[in-house]
Amino acid sequence: MHSFRGITRILAAGGLLTCAAAAQWLNLKTPNVPRTADGKPNLTAPAPKLPDGKPDLSGIWDADRSYLVNLAKDLKPEAVQMQPWAAAIYKERAAGLHASEEPDANCLPQGVPKIDAAPVPWKLIQMPNEVVILYEAFTQFRQIHMDGRKLPVDPNPIWLGYSVGHWDGDTLVVESNGFNGKAWLDQSGHPATEKLKVTEKFHRKDFGHMDLEITIDDPGAYTKPWTVKESPTLAADTELLEFVCSENEQDIKHMVRKK
C-alpha cells in the first residue's frame, strides 16, 4: 500500500526529505476514469473535455520527478547560459557544497517550478475562474487566477509567486512572477533571482498523459530564457496524503554545510 512512498523516500534523499504520511482512502476508485475490460484505468483514452470544449486537466498527477535533480537534464550546456555569479554558485551547489542550504531541505517551500517535479503527486482542480493545485509536497497549494487579472506589477516577493492563467487553444498557459529568488530550481542548484518569470504550459495529451512545458526567464541569473518539457502522468484510484515536513525532521544535521 505504501510502496510508492518507499520509492519516494529514496528518490528524494537530496532534498524534500521528511516524514511522510498516512493512508487516506488510498485505494478508492476514482470516478469517471475510462477503464479497460479488466477494470484498469485506460490512460490512453482521449483527454476529457468540458461542455465549453476546453480540456479538463483536473486530476491527481504524478510529477515527472526525473527533473527534480536537474531541471536542465535534457538540454545542451549552451542552452542554459548563466550569468557569471550564477555559474559560480551553481558549480558549488552541484558539487554538494551547499546541501544544507537548500530551502526545502529546511522545510521551506520548493518554489516554482521545482514543486511541479516533487517526488509526490499533485492534484489539479480546474474551475472557470481559478485553477487550484494541491501539492502533496508539504501539503501546500497554489492558486492560478483565470479571471483576467494581470500579474502584479511590483509584487512582494514570495516563495510560490503569483500566478495567472489563460487558454491558448487546448493548452493552459500559466504565468508567474513575484518570486523571492531564494528557491533553487532543482536539487543541482540552478539559481534564480527576484526577476524570475516562469511560464508553465499544461497540455493534456490523452487521459493519462500531460505535457508540461516550463520556461525559465530570469535575466538576473541567465542571459536568455530556457525551456524544458516535463511529462506528468495521471495517478488514478488514489488520493493525496498528508505531508508535514517539519515533523521529526532529522535530515538537515547530516547534510553538508559549507564552512
Binding site: A21, A22, A23, W25, L134, Q140, F141, L160, L240
Partner: peptide, 29 residues
C-alpha cells in the same frame, strides 16, 4: 477545499459519499 492562509496549507473535505476510514493512520488534519 479549505485553503488556509495560515501555513499555506489545505484541507480536503470529501462530499462524494465515501465513508470515514475505519482504522485511519493518524494525521495532523
Amino acid at each position: 477545499m479549505m485553503l488556509f492562509e495560515g501555513f499555506t496549507t489545505f484541507r480536503q473535505i470529501f462530499t462524494d459519499g465515501r465513508e470515514l476510514p475505519k482504522d485511519p493512520n493518524p494525521t495532523w488534519f
